[in-house]
Design a protein around this nucleic acid. Structure first.
Lengths: 224, 224
DNA sequence: TACTGTGAACTAATTCACAGCT
DNA sequence: AGCTGTGAATTAGTTCACAGTA
């Protein structure tokens, strides 16, 4: 395995999902054309992405669904379980705590933290909400190296600092603020307002050109 | 305005947020260096992104905060209100329905739909949950051109088809499935499992190199 | 002096097109 | 015949470095 581009890494989870579906429907072999169609990318893209993972395909035949599924699972680090701590038990934190797709991939929610006394002590999706004071001990006790920040923006940086100090190396943040972290820490941000804003931008353009040529838009899947 | 790259469009909402913060703190002028630091990108990137929006800066001085804020708001299409319909009133749909940051940007949640009879008729964040049967009439009545899909994956494509048929042109989906849409429809997908998976991939690599060089990781902000 | 705007260089990512294998 | 894997070409995105200007 030479070296995977960031763009490839972002697509591997998509291929993995498609392969699970294929495996569930007893499909044994899949071609780059088929896989591409199911994943919403081009066939050349699929081959480029998969080639560096080792020889996975058979020329003239295609890819073995099970073998490829195992290979990607392995490359992505999904052979182990990843304990996850969620900070912020508001609506979003609650939604994430109950999100079934996480567990299927080996992401086990191990704790839900919040500062709100009205929430602390309650149980959400089977997880007792702990007081945020205990962040450090909860991280230590669960061994979590991944944390999700679902707090109000104003609290995010402080929470982030404490998570990093407690040893968390990977953070998924839903707070629309820049998180400053040491270089070894990996932060991904999901900005829901920004997503809608990009849609608004395109929508506005579409409205402006009544029945004209619509700018480059790949289908299926749009420009997700 | 020549033509904005997709990458630039994705960053404009970030600049807009930073500018709002600056405006709130009575800052009148900002340089590309400062804006870059606050947005977590490079200064050259900021200038490249802003230059095509017209002459916004003054050489030797910087950018006028208010004027730039207005300009970006205008370019992104945020001068009008965007009615939004959310399909799926589970935890995630509820979280989105109550998400304050949407309203601040002019995204007004106008309806929440669900098939679950236990949810229909209840009120969430001030929005009555409507039966999903009424999708078409709700889209028509609200004039929504943006919709959010927060349903289980199995229902997403059918919902998507109905939304498109009802005239929705922009869709934000949280369902981890490929949505097939006509070319004129814009789809953005947020795949939460995939986000965690990318973190797991990097985390695994970090663990593998105990005290070694960590691969390219920009700070602040990590590789969000 | 201190900043923006931009040509030019560079790097990353995608797509083409075909050689090579089964 | 039908597929993968990959060099080569292309396109998109970023960064540099500096000319231009208030």
């Amino acid at each position: 395995m030479t070296e995977l581009s960031e763009a490839t890494v972002a697509r591997l989870p998509v291929y993995l999902r498609v392969l699970s579906e294929l495996a569930a429907s007893r499909t044994r072999v899949v071609s780059s054309d088929e896989l591409a169609a199911l994943a919403g990318v081009g066939p050349a893209q699929v081959r480029r992405d998969l080639a560096p993972l080792g020889p996975n395909g058979v020329r003239g035949v295609g890819y073995d669904v099970d073998a490829l599924q195992r290979r990607i699972t392995d490359v992505l680090g999904l052979t182990r379980e990843w304990p996850v701590v969620i900070v912020g038990a508001g609506h979003l934190g609650q939604a994430l705590a109950g999100y079934a797709a996480f567990a299927e991939r080996g992401f086990c929610i191990r704790a839900l933290l919040d500062t709100d006394p009205a929430l602390v002590g309650t149980t959400i999706a089977g997880h007792p909400v702990e007081p945020a004071d205990r962040l450090e001990e909860v991280v230590a006790a669960t061994g979590a190296s991944i944390a999700v920040i679902a707090t109000p923006p104003a609290a995010a940086q402080a929470v982030c600092d404490r998570l990093v100090a407690a040893g968390v190396g990977s953070i998924l943040s839903f707070a629309p603020v820049l998180l400053v972290v040491p270089p070894a820490v990996d932060v991904r941000q999901v900005d829901l307002s920004a997503e809608l804003t990009v849609l608004a931008f395109h929508g506005q353009r579409r409205d402006a050109l009544p029945a004209e040529r619509v700018p480059a838009e790949r289908v299926p899947g749009g420009d997700a």
